[in-house]
């Protein structure tokens, strides 16, 4: 169940009265104002909105990359808005899988090594890490490209490697900020198919920012970011 009225109960992600104001010089720029959101485990949400409406800001707050000006964000039992920077870093490693529009992969590492990066922070043995990486890469359909460098992959394949890296630690939810923004139609479809499959087959929770209506259609629900709050737009295919 996905709600924007702040009335959800026991949801996986519960955002209440979230506000974020940037300061530029002596001018306050309010971006988010009193935003509410509930997302249950296994849901998929697409966020849309004009450029500058605060979509990335919202995603960064949900992922613990930035701290809000007001309000609270609870994920599972954790209130992340009051965490210290150090705890937030550890929390991110455990609970969030990020897929960005660009800068995703380290060019000097192979696909395998890129996917292994988050696992280096765990206590897993070398053999266990290899198992996890191989599994993640076969889920995204790139088991045969394991030892390729990012420059040897297409844009769509690169994003699929990034998705493999995001799911390899089995995080609580995935945050994708315009993951298809730099891709052509067919590559974008590959990536969107993959995300849909992660939700449908593996029960992953996915929050996705996109400008692409076709990407938005595939989510359980499409939400518009408008004047600092979320509004329900239309029901997605599965809602």
């Amino acid at each position: 169940m996905i709600r924007v009225d702040g009335r959800g109960e026991n949801s996986l992600i519960a955002v209440r009265n979230l506000g974020k104001t940037y300061r530029r010089g002596n001018q306050d720029i309010p971006v988010l104002q009193g935003l509410n959101l509930d997302v249950d485990a296994g849901d998929s949400v697409a966020f849309m909105g004009p450029s500058g409406s605060g979509k990335s800001t919202l995603l960064n707050l949900l992922g613990g990359l930035d701290v809000p000006t007001t309000g609270s964000i609870r994920v599972g039992g954790d209130e992340i808005t009051h965490m210290s920077a150090g705890r937030l870093t550890t929390w991110r490693a455990r609970h969030v899988g990020f897929v960005f529009q660009m800068f995703n992969l380290l060019p000097v590492l192979t696909a395998f090594q890129n996917v292994e990066l988050p696992l280096l922070l765990t206590r897993l043995s070398r053999a266990e890490r290899r198992d996890h990486v191989e599994t993640a890469l076969s889920v995204v359909g790139l088991a045969d490209r394991m030892h390729h460098y990012p420059r040897e992959l297409s844009g769509g394949q690169e994003q699929r490697v990034a998705i493999a890296r995001a799911i390899v630690t089995d995080p609580t939810f995935l945050l994708c900020d315009e993951p298809t923004g730099d891709l052509d139609r067919s590559s974008a479809d590959e990536v969107l198919d993959l995300l849909a499959q992660l939700v449908a087959e593996y029960g992953k929770t996915v929050l996705l920012v996109t400008h692409d209506p076709r990407a938005a259609e595939r989510a359980h629900m499409l939400l518009h970011l408008d004047k600092g709050v979320l509004v329900e737009a239309q029901s997605g295919a599965h809602a």
Binding site: G63, R94, F100
Partner: peptide
């Protein structure tokens, strides 16, 4: 910068 930011995002500490 971008790569370091990704590392930080996925849980590497300062």
């Amino acid at each position: 910068t971008g790569e370091l930011a990704v590392l930080r995002a996925i849980g590497y500490s300062p």
